[in-house]
Computed example of a mutant assay.
Amino acid sequence: MGRIALAGFAVAAADLASLLAGWEAGHPVFKPLLMPLLVAYALTRGAPRLLVAALLFGWGGDLALLFDAEAAFLVGMGSFAVGHVCYLVLFGRRAAHPLLGGAYALALVGTVALLWGDLPADLRVPVAGYSLLLTAMAFRSSALGPRAGLGGALFLLSDTLIATGVADWPQLPRPDFWIMATYLAAQYLLATGVMASGNRAYGRGAALPGEHSER
């Protein structure tokens, strides 16, 4: 395992440990380092530009959500939304199973319907729109294989946990730990799933959608 990967796992472990221990000073220090380290790791493995962009927009969302304000929440949600668009373009036209699409559609409608009345009125439409985009990304990720598909599902779970907090629903103990654990696993699985899929489909070092080939 390379040094960048080791550094990434170490920082992720430190961030999760600080959340689990309730050490509030740790999260603002470790969280901003996580996506840049994943980007650096991805670049060493020839990641396509759209994957790098998706991770960087995720980083923007991470930074915004460090601030406890509604405006920061909206900025963070917007940054993540752009990242999901990058993922969707990157996934291309590969086919995902239609039955899985039906399950995701039911989950989307059910979750938004349950949360709607408990969300702040000015956040209902933005959250619903973001949820539609996120669910589409999660569904389409499954077309790249189980690894990326699991990453998409965990991203949906992580953001659903955030939404239940915004709606002031009862939370698990240490909710920030579970949100970050599922989010970090999601981004790692999506990134590595995209790169593995590109290597299988095009040959190692070849271009994915959104990346031109040098050959």
Rank of each mutant, 00 (worst) to 15 (best):
A47F: 01
Y130D: 04
T111G: 10
A113E: 10
L50M: 10
A201F: 05
A14V: 06
V11N: 01
A186Q: 11
L172N: 15
Y41P: 00
V75D: 01
L190W: 07
A71Y: 08
F67R: 02
L132H: 00
F155I: 11
F30N: 06
T182F: 14
M137G: 01
T164Y: 09
F91E: 05
A14L: 14
Q187T: 11
V109S: 03
V127Y: 00
A5I: 10
R49F: 01
Q171Y: 03
G210F: 02
P175H: 08
P32H: 09
P146H: 10
G76Q: 08
G205N: 05
L154E: 04
S197C: 10
L189S: 10
P28A: 06
A7F: 14
G61R: 01
V11R: 00
P170A: 05
P175M: 11
L51A: 05
G101W: 09
L55N: 03
E24C: 03
A64S: 12
E70M: 07
A10W: 13
V112R: 09
G58Q: 07
S131Y: 05
G210S: 08
A64D: 06
A186S: 15
A72S: 14
H97S: 12
L51Q: 07
Y104P: 01
L189A: 06
P120I: 01
P175G: 10
A21E: 15
P209R: 04
L208S: 09
A121D: 15
R94N: 11
T182W: 13
L157S: 07
W116K: 03
D118H: 11
F80H: 07
L63H: 06
D118C: 03
L157H: 09
V112F: 02
L134K: 00
